[in-house]
Nucleic acid binder design. Structure first.
Ligand code: MN
Ligand code: MN
Ligand code: MN
Ligand code: MN
Lengths: 221, 221
DNA sequence: AATTTTTTTTAGGTTTGTCTAAATTTTATT
DNA sequence: AATAAAATTTAGACAAACCTAAAAAAAATT
């Protein structure tokens, strides 16, 4: 049986998991930035997580979660995303309001709670930001998705996820009336600034900057 | 604005609140028993809660929450009971399984979360144990209820709440097929041991001990 | 290859919430 | 009223999770 971890431990584990998705490894400074703590505090926790056999770590080296660590991380990600889905679908939260609350809810320890919640929500496969929700075995759906910047002109497509969850981004998307599930086509690309003209489902045209297009993932329909 | 309190502080506040319901005052030993901590730890926390102006406390004296303390306590009780209701009504928990989970959920801090949850649940007025749920202003319904031991013979009545939530009690009630909302009549009282014969709605007769009868609250119909 | 800069760790503190053991105060009993 | 018992507080420690400042190691630059 997997033991329980403290809220602090869980936050470290989850953040290591996300950071190691890109290169497979994480550095002390990266992690301290992600967690808003000092590098010295990270070192303390790395020793503890190594002792608890969740982490491959040698002093001064990059580190990564081992199999057990990843399993624990997926459990936390699962809880986080299920709660986000609950907040949006059942409690009328905006998709830009759920992250902080889920940051707390993800640490509730009851196993039964999360299984019943999953069932109550009808086993959703993606959270409100388009990120996949691991099932109780840690498996998650992959969506073949591409960046909006890579989408050719005049192809029907649907927004599947966003590359960041900063309030700033979500505020801008809300203003432009774009969210997960929005249908759109790219109508023009302007080479001067790489900005893009989109046509939304209701035929409304909106212009988005290259910075914005490069954090929107879509799938062709 | 009311500041946020730590999980430990909230558990102390809530327990003081419940304990002072009977005599208006609480002692160090009572509280340490309720919280499963040592009296010395209680003294430490009492000083802190007094400093934060939630508590009337002088060394070696009994203590009680002041108005602000009670307000904070009611907020925690509200969250606890709403979550219990959610677990039973939406997530298929048994009424004897919800307490521990609610013990964690009651500390989630989002104000919006609890208001939306209340609305989602349709503003329930009683939790699964029959205890009243404070509204967002701290007001709660009172139920004119009497102890089953005080109920005269042959009066139609309904179980409204239980005087304890120990697993032992809930196990026994489940075995006897009694829960909140069960309709019953007292048919006989045996003076030898004060045990009582009940008739349930389905005409089934069950015998309950004096100890059990004295923790069941009912209202006449 | 030597030097500088950056990254990481170590050493030593702090706060919160707990504990044990001893001291003090209050309450009960003789 | 004196003494014994019980309740409470104080003193001193400890673990978890953080911090700052200094030391050590690794990486980058000259
Ligand atoms: Mn979190
Ligand atoms: Mn998300
Ligand atoms: Mn609690
Ligand atoms: Mn209850």
């Amino acid at each position: 049986m997997i033991p329980n971890f403290s809220q602090a431990e869980e936050n470290y584990i989850k953040n290591i998991y996300h950071l190691q998705q890109s290169t497979g490894f994480v550095t002390t400074n990266e992690l301290s930035a992600a967690l808003n703590t000092k590098p010295a505090s990270v070192t303390d926790m790395l020793k503890k997580l190594k002792l608890k056999k969740l982490l491959n770590y040698e002093p001064y080296k990059e580190f990564q979660l081992n199999a057990l660590g990843k399993k624990v991380a997926l459990g936390i990600v699962r809880k986080h995303r299920l709660w986000e889905y609950f907040l949006v679908e059942k409690l009328q939260f905006g998709w830009d309001e759920v992250h902080e609350v889920a940051e707390e809810l993800e640490h509730i320890s009851s196993k039964k709670l999360i299984e019943q919640l999953d069932s109550f929500l009808n086993y959703p496969r993606f959270d409100p930001h388009g990120d996949p929700i691991p099932d109780s075995n840690g498996k998650m759906s992959v969506q073949q998705q591409l960046l909006l910047t890579e989408l050719p002109l005049n192809r029907f497509s649907e927004v599947t996820s966003v590359g960041s969850q900063s309030t700033e981004l979500l505020e801008l998307l809300k203003h432009k009336n774009i969210s997960i599930g929005t249908r759109l086509e790219v109508k023009r690309k302007f080479s001067f600034d790489q900005s893009t003209e989109l046509e939304l489902e209701n035929k409304v045209r909106v212009n988005i900057s290259e910075q914005l297009a490069s954090v929107l993932f879509v799938k062709e329909l």
